[in-house]
């Protein structure tokens, strides 16, 4: 049995059903890519998996560590080991990235303000931070800045991956992490993600374009169209999409290759 199992997931937004029965099994160490044209349900999938309140689950289950995570609050899912790298990271004014990261790290470790042994020490925090920043070609000048406030597109995406590196999830969902990034930023992000790859981590990359998959090689590729998987297979599926696009499923106008 896989470590993370999505079974027949159905979800709707504002009364409109978007996911119409999605099943997917991820084992530790694997990288899965979900590809699909606009409106196919990609972001509904990522948001539903993490528990966004705007998405209603109509059926199915998501099993992880013996629990149906669909019954958990987003923070509980995160503490269980899930992570979502947002397509559009949210601006939260007045809270520094450093404070945010430290609070998140403490929550992840179960520090509730009492047991000081669980608290991340300033020294530990600094050293963790330092090595991750280097990989992402970032400097610590962004630490005192407010969460995503005034960040460029590339900075936002890198900050997401930085959070992932710090929080060390077991299941990471990367939602369109490549969109809006220049080629250098994609490389930095991919390098950081590839560093984390290993038997301790399962990755779900959600993307419209094949480009990011040149840098983060997937083990499996699934094509999502109209809320259902229409094709699943190995890396060759991405190659096929690169050549023919989503045309065979009636989305001829959409190119899976980003025009630079």
């Amino acid at each position: 049995m896989a470590d993370f199992e999505i079974k027949d997931l159905r979800a709707s937004v504002e009364g409109r059903q978007i996911l119409k029965g999605v099943s997917l099994a991820i084992s530790m160490g694997e990288v899965h890519a979900v590809m699909g044209p606009n409106g196919s349900g990609k972001s509904t999938l990522s948001h539903t998996l993490m528990g966004h309140p705007g998405y209603t689950v109509d059926g199915g289950s998501v099993l992880f560590k013996g629990q149906n995570v669909l019954e958990l609050e987003p923070d509980e899912r995160a503490r269980l080991g899930m992570f979502l790298a947002f397509q559009y990271p949210v601006v939260v004014p007045g809270i520094s990235m450093a404070n945010f990261l430290r609070t998140a790290l403490n929550s992840k470790r179960g520090y509730d303000g009492k047991d000081k042994s669980k608290q991340v020490t300033p020294k530990e925090f600094r050293s963790m931070m330092k090595s991750e920043l280097e990989v992402l070609h970032m400097d610590d000048s962004f630490l005192p800045r407010y969460i995503n406030d005034g960040f460029s597109g590339g900075e936002k995406k890198r900050a997401e991956i930085l959070q992932m590196a710090m929080l060390k999830p077991e299941i990471a969902i990367l939602d369109e992490t490549d969109s809006g990034l220049d080629i250098d930023s994609i490389k930095f992000v991919a390098e950081a993600v590839n560093r984390m790859r290993g038997p301790e981590l399962g990755i779900l990359i959600i993307t419209h374009y094949t480009r990011v998959l040149e840098f983060i090689k997937p083990d499996y590729v699934h094509v999502l169209v109209d809320g259902k998987f229409v094709l699943s297979g190995g890396p060759e599926v991405a190659e096929r999409l690169e050549n023919t696009g989503y045309a065979e499923w009636g989305h001829a106008e959409e190119e899976p290759k980003e025009v630079a």
Binding site: M50, G51, D75, A78, V92, A104
Partner: peptide, 9 residues
């Protein structure tokens, strides 16, 4: 949602 998705209650 953003803050909670990072494990913060």
């Amino acid at each position: 949602f953003y803050l909670m998705s990072r494990g913060i209650p």
